[in-house]
């Protein structure tokens, strides 16, 4: 009996539609979130992540109705992120059927929010989303910094130290996105994932840069991630979830 590594398709949403930004700027429409979530669930996705990518920037709440619609039709875990700022926001999402919430910007502005949220709802439903960008130069030791607002705003926070602090505050899982790789299809930033996975006690979801199935494998074997998240390779039909699982299983990774 071994815990399986998870494959998590991510629905980046804006105005109730699934979109996927290339480096968070050039956005393409990939359809209805409820239909897509249901399709992924039927295909054997291990979880669904729903991110309202513009919520933080424009002060928009993630659409509770969409979350409720998804939760009513998919019977696998659903994580919701984007615009989670208050305990009431979390309660609203859990009541709508979300299993976990991803906190990003609010955690940076108020690290105690993560502690309050974990105390109130339990660490198991508090995911801290970290958007990190490499700031070290050639020949220097690796260093990554936290960015907010879709990668626009630097914070001066060291990504590894920040991840450790968030876990100490009660984060139950880390969703780590490399801003350098997001949308590039060049694969995960494996050094970043490994540095954070080995520094924290909670599960790590690798995100940002998946372009093929070997990237998923590397995220787990080299990046030491517990789960791998991808959007466009699944949304645009380049690969299906069963293909991804078969490939990973062939490389010796335990999947469901």
């Amino acid at each position: 009996m071994t815990l399986a590594k998870r494959i998590i398709p991510c629905l980046d949403c804006e105005n109730g539609r699934v979109v996927k930004g290339v480096q968070f700027v050039d956005i393409r429409d990939a359809g209805d979130p409820v239909e897509i979530a249901k399709r992924y669930c039927d295909q054997g996705a291990d979880e669904i992540t729903f991110l309202d990518i513009t919520a933080s920037h424009e002060g928009r709440q993630t659409t509770i109705d969409t979350v409720r619609d998804i939760a009513g039709q998919v019977f696998i875990p659903l994580t919701v992120g984007g615009g989670i700022r208050t305990l009431q926001d979390i309660r609203d999402m859990l009541n709508a059927g979300a299993d976990k919430v991803a906190i990003n910007t609010s955690a940076v502005y108020n690290p105690d929010f993560v502690r309050e949220a974990a105390d109130k709802f339990g660490s198991q439903c508090i995911v801290v989303a970290i958007d990190a960008k490499k700031v070290s130069g050639e020949g220097e030791p690796d260093k990554w910094e936290i960015f907010t607002h879709g990668g626009r705003n630097p914070t001066g926070l060291d990504a590894v130290e920040w991840a450790k602090k968030m876990v100490a505050n009660g984060a139950g899982e880390i969703l780590l996105t490399s801003m350098d790789r997001d949308g590039t299809k060049d694969g995960f930033d494996l050094a970043l994932n490994r540095a954070i996975s080995e520094a924290v006690s909670v599960p790590l979801i690798a995100s940002g840069g998946v372009g093929n199935l070997q990237h998923l494998v590397e995220g787990i074997t080299e990046g030491k991630a517990d789960a791998v998240l991808a959007a466009s390779i699944f949304h645009f039909g380049e690969y299906s979830i069963p293909e991804a699982k078969e490939y990973m299983a062939g490389k010796g990774i335990v999947v469901r």
């Binding site: 009996m1 071994t2 815990l3 399986a4 590594k5 998870r6 291990d46 660490s123 198991q124 139950g172 899982e173 080995e198 924290v200 006690s201 909670v202 599960p203 790590l204 030491k224 517990d226 789960a227 469901r256």
Partner: peptide, 23 residues
């Protein structure tokens, strides 16, 4: 417990999160 190690030698994370077999 803290510091649990899996079959592959990797550190096991807590929470135990994901799909596991039930005998």
């Amino acid at each position: 417990p803290k510091d649990m190690v899996g079959e592959d030698g990797d550190h096991l994370k807590v929470p135990h999160m994901g799909w596991n077999e039930v005998k």
